[in-house]
Amino acid sequence: MNQEVVETSIEDAEEAGRPFLPNHVVEEMGVIFLVTGIIMIIASLLRPEEVGLPHIFFAGAHEMADVVAPWFAGLVILLVVIFLLALPFLDRSEERHPFKRLLFIIIMLGIILVWLVFTILGF
């Protein structure tokens, strides 16, 4: 029953949507030029090694490996990946609204919070 409601709403949304060809394709081309342009402008203005962004992405893992045992940090990362892979099989309800999936939202917020705390500590 629920499935039917979802399918109908997709059809309605598509009906009210925009043709893929050419309208959406033209807009996507615009996005491609915009993204490429932004990368090229930043690349010509800033040396990546001076900003050190990659360090931000891995600072959390570095810090966790320092604070707890490195193998434990590896285990935590592995568990997060397994959690993400298993997510569709753990969260089997048909509810998609975030406020109606509080358990999984809280788990994900917890993961993001831990990552942010270790990243701030490590950077």
Binding site: A13, E15, A16, R18, F20
Partner: peptide, 11 residues
């Protein structure tokens, strides 16, 4: 592809 439409919410 010509018949395909991008849903409104996905814009």
């Amino acid at each position: 592809t010509k018949q395909k439409k991008v849903p409104k919410h996905a814009l």
